[in-house]
Design a protein around this nucleic acid. Structure first.
Lengths: 214, 214, 214, 214
DNA sequence: CTTTAACCGAGACGGTACGTCATGTCTTACG
DNA sequence: CGTAAGACATGACGTACCGTCTCGGTTAAAG
């Protein structure tokens, strides 16, 4: 998040409602215009706020969009569906649903692109989105370990690496399917993806469910 | 690619060298400025070409950047390293090396972001980059099937779905690791990724290499 | 005029019809677009001719428009209406009619404006338009002298000055009335103008026709 | 004139000094470049002002030049030199001096040319230049009537027509002499012109001066 | 009846200016 | 001091014409 009421108590206090109005206006503008056509002047008009107010609270377009998009992912949950594979399918479908919304599609990729040249923005994305949502992987892993589906890690460092890897594999595959390949991440695809993620391309000699991802 | 001398033979022919100069200038500008600061006027100056020449050959910045970035991925190869896992590791490391280059980083994500609102651009990306590089997955899969590591698909449709899935999983994980999580896709990470991709999170009862991605 | 077949006799001769087509297209474009919106590319298209052909024959827009407009004034005649005043009225009405045509209005003033910074263009205008039409003043003056309405000049130099003055007074007044004051030079106005020109503002104590210009 | 601070009192007020700087820069650019080479971007640079500021205050080049040129004619005065003819000679010489300045020469004719296709511009010229300077004719006429050199008009309508006619004859002749014939309106020419204007080409039987204009 | 040289159409080219738009800053009046 | 309004300097946009050039091809007079 961005704006804190500053330490000093004097002067007119900031209008607290403005923050929410600005973020909502940003998402609406993303839907209608996409990132590159979105202008801060337009957001200000939609939010019923002066451009100065907006600049006083966010440094620029990128940071504003990160905050506006980050909120979208807070609605993700990890319902207990009984097995690791089922839990993964459940959360991946939620994630795919969010990525199907235009404000997430164009906003997310655009700020990632900008972040390739802006260390501060990269950090903001990591803090507001990536680390924030790793909670889902952590919860799923803990649940699977409690069920005996996954072995506990030998040490904390290895655990962290495993969480990071799974997060990148899950989020990356869904994003790539949705935005680069531009195909829907529907139930069928999610099912195949989960099978490969859980069992691998070559499920081994055991009595596994069957080879291909189809 | 972009400019073909049109069917009619009349008129002064296009300068063939200009295309290459423009694409090289685009990549150079991407390195120095990133996508959002890149201007077509600047590219034209770098390429020693008039702005009008550039607009005569590409509709706009997005299409130009797609073409400039697409060329980067043509250098990917699939060396035969003896096993499916080793082949995957080899190509993923090459892919990670390309994504470490700034012209690929900002260019690729930016055009993907733009493509969320532009069907024609989406198609251009799919044709120039996605479909073009699926050759790697196809070659690797065929080689693994020849070795007996993977079972042949029952039908063409299933084969296509499998190729798409693997492509999204590989490319998506590397892109996410590199650009969103902003961590390097180094040998250690690639090794862990490949183990999960080939054997799954729960390798099952067989004599598999052992669990976890560590 | 412009294009002469050059000294060398070999080679394909110029298409003679093109000159007329270009000048006609120029006048048509002046009517529709005015001087500042007129483009040589457009004239070439209207004339069914390549832009190169046009540039081979005229140095630029200004010279082309001078030639196109100059032709308009060649239709002026000086009918013998019996008296100096009547002759003046007759030719002034013809002149006003030409200036009421849009190709003359915008073309003439525009090239005069350009000529303020281009000596060669000034000379072209003087030769093609001014000197060419002084024939009317010369003829009228000679006729009035034959009738005894005007005294013959004492010497050639004085005669030339008188002709120049009358030409400037007649042409200037009509042009100013028509284009600057933007009022029509109708019969009533021409009548008043002629009275002042012939008899002056203060016609003197004699039995003149009466004072004011009304 | 052009820019008034709008009715609303909010917002940053316009920089009042900018108007004068822009008009002065316009005249300077007219001197150096002429109308057709004058660009608004260049004027903005000379005035130390952004191009947007300029477009905020004037619709385009034509209107800007009208305002810049109109100011030049405000310095005209009508000194009392004792007789109608002397008064006319005085003001005509002043007018000729202004028309000898390059910013007046190219600017005035160019906007007149443009006005042939633009009713609003025509009205702007009439209001800013023509009607504004008729004050000189009115004053001269009143003075001549007070001296008894001219008879008073019978009615207001006739008076207006007389003023218009004289204005067109004086301004038109000087403009034509200066810009179309491209000869200087020097003292000798002005003397001859005034004689014809006051006494006519055929001064009649009275004891007038000599006949010809020489 | 072949050369030869200028003509012609088409259209790409390097430029320049256009008029608009967005950015981020500033300056005012008001609360 | 926060705020709304809006002017401001800056700079890129994508378009339009400029006048030049480079083609393939045509056309007539000269040899």
């Amino acid at each position: 998040m961005q704006s804190r009421t500053p330490a000093g108590r004097t002067g007119r206090p900031r209008n607290a409602a403005a923050d929410a109005a600005i973020l909502a206006a940003t998402r609406q503008a993303l839907v209608e215009l996409g990132w590159s056509k979105l202008t801060l002047g337009d957001v200000a008009v939609r939010a019923g706020v002066a451009k100065t107010t907006l600049y006083r609270r966010w440094p620029g377009k990128n940071e504003l969009v990160v905050d506006a998009v980050a909120e979208l992912f807070d609605e993700l949950t990890l319902p207990d569906r009984g097995s690791l594979a089922a839990d993964i399918e459940g959360v991946v479908l939620q994630f795919a649903a969010i990525l199907a919304r235009p404000e997430a599609r164009s906003g997310l990729m655009a700020v990632v692109a900008e972040a390739t040249r802006d260390e501060a923005l990269r950090e903001r994305i990591r803090a507001s989105i990536v680390e924030r949502q790793k909670r889902l992987v952590l919860a799923g892993r803990a649940r699977a370990q409690a069920r005996g589906e996954l072995a506990p890690e030998s040490d904390a460092d290895e655990a962290a690496r495993a969480v990071d890897l799974i997060f990148d594999m899950v989020a990356g595959a869904v994003v790539h399917r949705t935005l680069v390949s531009a195909e829907p991440a529907d139930e069928k695809w999610v099912h195949g993806f989960t099978r490969v993620l859980v069992s691998g391309l070559t499920p081994g000699p055991g009595p596994g469910p069957g080879p291909g991802p189809g």
